[in-house]
Computed example of a mutant assay.
Amino acid sequence: MAIKLKKSYKFSFRSSLFITLLSSIVMGLTLYAFGIFNPYVILICAIVIYAFSFFILQYRVEKFIYRRVKRIYDDVSLLESTTFQNQPITTDMATLTREIEKFAKDKKVEIETLKVREAYRKEFMGNVSHELKTPLFTVQGYILTLLDGAMENEALRDKYLQRAEKGVERLIYIVKDLDMITKLEVGDLRLDYEDFDIIELIRNVFELFEMKSAKKNITLTFDMEYEKPVYVYADKERIQQVLTNLVVNSIKYGKKGGTTEISIENLIKNKVIVRVTDNGEGIEKQNIPRLFERFFRVDKSGSRKEGGSGLGLSIVKHIIEAHDEKIYVESVYGVGSEFSFTMEKAK
């Protein structure tokens, strides 16, 4: 690739002017001393001296600066800076300064981002370890107890095997959820779009958790009587998973005798918004920005007693965003929470 030089002549122009003036003065005084002073000779010599000085200085300074600037470009290119690789080498100091400053700012942002990611990675690995360790140790404990002689007791054997089975189920649940999040993040999970009635789907979810909600005397209901179906265009199975996770969360953190209410509203011509509202314990303001992080739990101890993988809301967010839609959360601590997400209407 041809190298394009952006030249600045200020230095050479001024330096040549100083050299010419000094040379002309010395020459004039010398000629005057010998009595052969001739202004025309001095003028011609001054022009020649200026021309030679200018071209020699310009060539030498340009080459001197270029060698050092090129070394800077080469060093920066080793860091795989696409900005510098795509730029022609210039000896203009102002341009180079701007590019170096921009490069430094970009690298600073990259370093800060890497630090945040590293902190997140450490936290994530710690959470994964903790979530997997608990059921693993539980299963191991029951199996070792059985091997140590408890197997002879039929009642104790059945009890411990059932508890070990629950531990294995939780492990499978966590692994499945992690696998789904990974696929959603890298775009490997294919969405099967279809037209379906969202009202009917919500009723099915209510029926699935009717017994679970009854244990806490929580009412699952619509905000009004929907006499006509509301058709949307999405992956029915994934949207059911979204609703399932949100309803399970509202039951888990809901108060006894409380309510989980779902409403569907028209937004614009081709969009609806689904709201899942409860009057449970609510979420403190500082915890809301982290709600959709993997394994983040508002109540570390209480939520683990309720079970689950700690990945529910993260999965919800990824599924909705995979549909190119938005999810929102509003909550007042001690009053309740509302999760809402948009969907495209069926054509």
Score class of each variant (00 low, 15 high):
R163I: 12
I25W: 00
T83R: 14
D106S: 11
K345P: 01
I264C: 06
N266V: 04
E210I: 08
F209D: 15
K105R: 13
I44G: 13
N153F: 06
E293T: 09
E284W: 05
V26S: 08
E185R: 13
I174G: 03
D278W: 01
L79W: 04
F18V: 15
L114Y: 01
V247M: 02
R203C: 04
M211C: 09
T219C: 10
V332T: 12
L291N: 05
V175Q: 11
R290M: 12
S24V: 10
I36M: 09
E306T: 12
A119G: 08
I262C: 07
L146D: 02
F64G: 06
I288V: 15
E200K: 05
G334I: 10
K102A: 12
I172T: 12
L161I: 05
S340N: 01
R294D: 13
K4S: 12
E325A: 14
I56D: 02
A214W: 07
K216T: 01
T82N: 13
S340G: 04
K345G: 03
V316H: 03
T138Q: 14
K133W: 09
G35F: 01
E154I: 14
L243H: 08
L136I: 10
R190C: 07
T83F: 11
N249K: 06
A104S: 14
I3S: 04
I319V: 13
Y66F: 15
D92T: 14
V26C: 12
L136H: 02
E281N: 04
I47S: 15
T134E: 13
V48Q: 02
S303M: 10
S331K: 03
L191W: 07
T91M: 02
Y9P: 06
R238A: 06
E261M: 09
L161F: 00
E165A: 11
N86A: 13
A164S: 14
K183N: 09
I25G: 00
I42G: 00
E62R: 12
P289F: 07
G307R: 04
D299E: 13
D92C: 09
K317I: 07
V329I: 15
T134Y: 09
L78P: 00
K4C: 05
M211T: 13
P39T: 11
H318F: 08
K133T: 13
K4R: 12
S263Y: 00
G336Q: 00
G141K: 08
T134C: 07
S8L: 12
G334C: 03
V247A: 05
I264P: 03
E165D: 14
S53H: 06
K122E: 14
E118H: 09
T83W: 10
Q85Y: 01
E200Q: 08
V48F: 11
E110S: 02
V69R: 05
T95S: 13
S314K: 03
Y32K: 06
L171G: 05
Y120F: 10
L171R: 03
I319M: 07
L178I: 09
V139H: 00
G254E: 01
I72F: 06
I25S: 07
V242R: 04
I49Q: 08
E99S: 11
Y32G: 15
R275Y: 10
K159T: 13
Y160V: 04
